[in-house]
Design a protein around this nucleic acid. Structure first.
Lengths: 203, 203
DNA sequence: AGCGCTGAGTCAACGGCGTTGACCACGTGA
DNA sequence: TCACGTGGTCAACGCCGTTGACTCAGCGCT
């Protein structure tokens, strides 16, 4: 599980799944947006632990209204997690170095949001809809982009397994903060782990 | 994160961390054991979602007593998760095939408890003490067993990264149940992913 | 102008959670 | 016999996500 995706820093309705808002009046649309913005901020800060009540307070609104607008906390969370991101460019680059570039992309300290996003998603992964979203994301982003460019057997499976590898790294680095790994030089991680990804894709 | 460990199927005080019970009377010891047994069963069944109240009911006891005996739900969970298991034998076997044997060990359908254990731990991984236990387990079980037998640079780091790989696989198979991976033949997974582990350890 | 409908929003409450403190019962040692 | 510590229950706290009843404002319609 690896994500060039997640809780966005700002409201970005263009990227979000299209939801019918035509029945809403301007006032409703505005507070709805305020709730979503507060949710994005708090989910990014505290992960799925951010409570509906805290989000409502942040948006200056009653907790019940959050549920009325979005149906459930889980649904709101899913709306605040979008699957776009710069990862597409990495996947579309030269195939022979995609392994190292993927690892470098996620470990780049200039992209601290990726860490937040990964943590929020990993924490909520026990919810069915979140799990399905992750599977979908793996298929539509990674498998769709890479499998057609591979050669040999088990092309889709090898992409999925490379995604598994990537997710394992992020888990150890971001969630567990294993001192052996976090204490290592990024360049060593990129080389060792990137090559492992690469061999899975282009053996 | 990979675990030959977890929620045990039976009470196994010999394996559990030694806790001073000398101040307890026989009655206290018995109900304490009953609570622990109920907790092991329910944690294995439902993961960390198993509630203190349900555990108490299962043990025929008041919820408050559970906390009084074990301090907190998190502490009880940690007691019910032990780090022993058959994994030691796998790690001590021939080094040149340890990658495939590790993957085969965890994916063996004859060991369904490993799945439960992984899921319970992964779900509780956002708790600090659980996270620390995982890090400790990686260091004491995997790194301690494998790093001294390796050659070349970054011996400890390479073991940690192999553990990361393994955890990534278990996440995709057990948590996300990604259809691409669950639909693949186990022998293909063992070959592809086991070799990836192997190359990390003995390149 | 008046009416009714519908969206916007609040409020109190529900059932569940982990945890705490007050309280009682019992068995043992002095 | 009496104090004391262990074993255990009970009610309650504060939190959670969610629901249903309710009010209020704005709109179209006659």
């Amino acid at each position: 599980m690896a994500y060039g995706c997640g809780v966005t820093e700002t409201s970005s309705p263009a990227r979000s799944a299209p939801v019918d808002e035509s029945h809403l009046r301007p006032a409703g649309r505005a507070t709805r947006a305020a709730i979503e913005e507060a949710a994005r901020r708090l989910f990014a800060e505290r992960g799925f632990d951010a409570s509906v009540r805290a989000i409502a307070t942040e948006a200056g609104v009653d907790p019940a209204l959050v549920i009325r607008h979005f149906g459930s906390k889980e649904a709101l969370f899913l709306r605040c997690v979008d699957t776009a991101g710069g990862i597409g460019a990495v996947l579309d680059g030269p195939l022979e170095s995609v392994g190292r570039r993927l690892v470098a992309y996620f470990l780049d300290p200039a992209r601290p949001l990726l860490r937040q996003r990964y943590l929020a998603l990993a924490q909520a992964a026990h919810l069915d809809q979140v799990r399905e979203e992750m599977v979908r994301h793996t298929a539509e982003t990674y498998v769709a982009a890479l499998a057609p460019r591979l050669t040999g057997e088990h092309r889709e499976l090898r992409v999925a397994l490379a995604v598994a590898q990537l997710g394992g790294l992020l888990n150890l680095v971001f969630r567990q903060e294993d001192p052996i790994v976090t204490g290592a030089a990024t360049e060593d991680l990129v080389a060792l782990y990137g090559d492992a990804l690469q061999r899975m894709l282009t053996p």
